[in-house]
Computed example of a mutant assay.
Amino acid sequence: LGKTNLDEFAMGGSTEHSAFGRTSNPWDLGRIPGGSSGGSAAALGAFEAPLAVGTDTGGSIRQPAAVTGTVGVKPTYGTVSRFGVIAMASSLDTPGPMARTVLDTALLHDVIASYDPLDSTSLSDAPRGMAAVVRAARAGRDLSGLRVGVVRELDGGEGYQPGVVDSFHAALHLLEEAGAQVETVCLPHLEYALDAYYLIMPAEASSNLARYDGMRYGLRVEPAQGPVTAETVMAATRGAGFGDEVKRRIILGTHVLSAGYYDAYYGSAQKVRTLVQRDFAAAWDEADVLVSPTAPVTAYRFGEKDDPLTMYKLDVTTIPANLAGVPGMSLPSGLVDGLPVGFQILAPQRADDRLYRVGAVLEAALEDRWGAPLLSRAPALPEAAPGQGAVSEEEN
């Protein structure tokens, strides 16, 4: 067992905001491994571990999986216990399994998905048996009768890297060959999902991180000058203990929750969340699963997205599942400019088995096309200084 790196308090999409230093992508050590669960994804992609656990608040399992050529699943909210996970946004946080194959991910899912009385949001009927679903799907390779809905609002557009959508549609064709019926589905309120998320998430984070006050536990920093009071200790501790991105989200969340702004921002965002949930509920009348690219771009170079707003916009494809509480999977669908891209599958609440059925059939079809799993096509990792996470060909 080992602790993998992540963005500080899971706030980030690149693992550049970690207090322990950045993590590199095994496909290119000069690029990000995604985030916030970038360390988990990088460890898998570098063959340092066969299984990993991440947390997904707005895509922090699926996006790292996409840019490292691995598999990541955000289960139905409440089916994997949050007990022991440091809370960021309690209504969104979802621990989940990560691995190099759909079957390995399913095996881990079956172990960690269960009811936990220590988590007040835990569901008593967490779906199990995912590994059996994968084995049956790979054996039969038949999706006849399955309705696959392509989310129109996430099928390309501004901000999508050329080639990402092409890879997505090539994978769609394989699902059709397996018997699936592919149609376009509209979720009209998704255009507001990103804005709603970046009001709800920092508001909940601000509330959750208020416990780090320098007095009850953990870090304590006393002011260099002036009186030592609760207020001055709290200010000094939080100023020294939180990184810039965490401070940015706390400030935003505190503002959103402040008197005079609560209804205008936080209250309105929750109304949008309800509309997004209703969009998904209506979509399940038209489709058994929904699909889209997992991320609009491949792994970018360190420092390339130094503007917070630019980085936030990269979550546009993954955030809707968290707002709706539905399960989602990312699996590799190919390479664009030599870097992995991901294919995202979404299913209704408690229907996590559909992710694994579709994912297993698609994975098998892609491996037939490639002749081997995608990770076998990764370039040999170059020599790296100790601690960079590179492995030799022999170890690989």
Rank of each mutant, 00 (worst) to 15 (best):
G2I: 14
T4E: 01
L6S: 07
D7T: 12
E8W: 10
T15N: 01
G21K: 03
G21I: 07
W27D: 01
L29A: 02
S37T: 05
A41M: 02
E48K: 09
E48S: 08
T55C: 04
S60G: 05
I61G: 00
A65Q: 02
V67W: 00
T79N: 06
V80F: 08
S81A: 11
R82H: 08
I86A: 13
A89K: 00
S90F: 13
S91P: 07
L92F: 14
P95H: 09
M98H: 11
A99S: 15
T101Y: 10
V111N: 13
V111P: 01
Y115C: 09
D119M: 04
T121Q: 10
P127E: 09
G129R: 10
M130K: 11
M130T: 05
L146W: 14
R147H: 13
G149V: 10
V150M: 09
E153K: 12
V165C: 03
D166I: 02
A171G: 05
L172P: 12
E176R: 15
E177S: 04
T184A: 14
P188E: 00
H189K: 01
E191L: 12
Y192P: 00
L194N: 12
L199T: 15
P202D: 10
A205M: 13
S206R: 10
L209T: 03
A210R: 08
R211S: 06
M215Y: 08
L219H: 08
V221A: 09
E222D: 14
P223R: 12
P223I: 12
T232C: 00
R249M: 11
L252P: 04
V256S: 13
L257R: 14
S258P: 09
Y261W: 06
L275E: 03
R278N: 14
A282P: 05
E286A: 15
A295H: 15
V297F: 05
V297R: 08
T298A: 04
R301G: 02
E304W: 09
Y312S: 01
T317H: 10
A321L: 03
A324K: 10
V326Q: 07
L331P: 09
V336T: 05
V336Y: 13
D337W: 09
L355M: 14
E363M: 02
L375F: 08
L375G: 04
S376W: 06
E383I: 00
A385L: 15
G387R: 07
A390F: 11
N396V: 07
